[in-house]
Design a binder for these strands. Sequence first.
DNA 1: TGTACATCAGTGAACGCGCGTTCACTGATGTAC
DNA 2: TGTACATCAGTGAACGCGCGTTCACTGATGTAC
Lengths: 204, 204
Amino acid sequence: MSPNDTYHHGDLRAACLRAARELLEEDGSAGLSLRAVARRAGVSATAPYRHYADREALVSAVAAEGYRELAGHLAGAHPAPSTPDELAAVAVAYVQFALKHPGLFRAMFAEPCDPTSEERVAATAAISEYVRGIVRATFPDVDSDTLSTTVWALVHGLAFLHLDGKLDASTPEVVTTQVTAAVHALFNASPAMSTTAAAARPGV
Amino acid sequence: MSPNDTYHHGDLRAACLRAARELLEEDGSAGLSLRAVARRAGVSATAPYRHYADREALVSAVAAEGYRELAGHLAGAHPAPSTPDELAAVAVAYVQFALKHPGLFRAMFAEPCDPTSEERVAATAAISEYVRGIVRATFPDVDSDTLSTTVWALVHGLAFLHLDGKLDASTPEVVTTQVTAAVHALFNASPAMSTTAAAARPGV
DNA sequence: TGTACATCAGTGAACGCGCGTTCACTGATGTAC
DNA sequence: TGTACATCAGTGAACGCGCGTTCACTGATGTAC
């Protein structure tokens, strides 16, 4: 692939990230070892140390990448949601992302943020702010702190319960239906009337 | 402790469970090894094999015990909730349990149920049914499938976001406040009026 | 354009470790007579 | 009550493994002149 395949790899940093994610999806967090990453990247066991201080640093980098991708995936579902239906579409995208990358998603949330990885902390804060922004846009008159916490928790819980086999995740369709129904249940409105729900209950 | 402390342990099975849970809380899932369990129980490395077929069997037993305790803890919060306020109290208990036993809680949900462990599968189903029953009692006229999924996901999501440091969990009080607020947001009613919410919106 | 040299990105041997699991074993317990 | 014996619940040595990390090293690259 690279001009010279022998000594210098070309972009080992990115290759490690890719290998780490593959391992995460194949064997879960336990399968993610620096040695396995090196093996998969076709490189000696110690080569990754040129790019990552230790295993923890690699895991943090993977998680941070996951956060960035999740943010992109959500934005892809709808660039600027401002109705309950649009918000529900973003919720579906969140759960879909978790189901598509279960190993990555677990790694992102499996532990409290490593406080020494500012890359990771920033990524978490960005997601949190993003959710808050959507909720504010959708329900401008509502206490957005409480409601955005509620929305995030609901969607996050749906993601994990599906991931862990606690809810039926056999087809993408059934997942979409469940997530949409749950989000609409939160807004206490049927899908048909949901776009007017915010206006109908301005003082909540 | 036991009559004779030397050869026969007395109740190594229970001691392994206890040791496993301690290790889980101290070092997380990675710290839970059969050898470490044996060490902590003061027994040779292979003694646990008399009681557990392998590591996976021990983990499943721990998870199943966790489910039973969680069920007990929820029932302790309110034996038969039938109002939004009572349901919120159970929700708070759920999150409290997660925060009090983070390692255990993660082990319970970290993977899909081992389908070969009927003890574990049954425990999961019991929790699921329990939530459904509460929701049915609280909102008799509502589509209980959707709403109970929504409630469980919301509470489960709150538990994990607190656990993972994504929401403020610095004091039990702030957690209680957040969880109560989120549950009431789901029922779209302020705490004061929540006990009448079900009756007020019978047709949802 | 050619050469000297610093720097960068790899190698590979080696360390010590803890792990799951097997095996043949042995000490303690309990039961039948 | 005493004894023979089956069974149960431990032991401890040993296996092979993969891990994270260190170290001194070397090949490739790029830059200054």
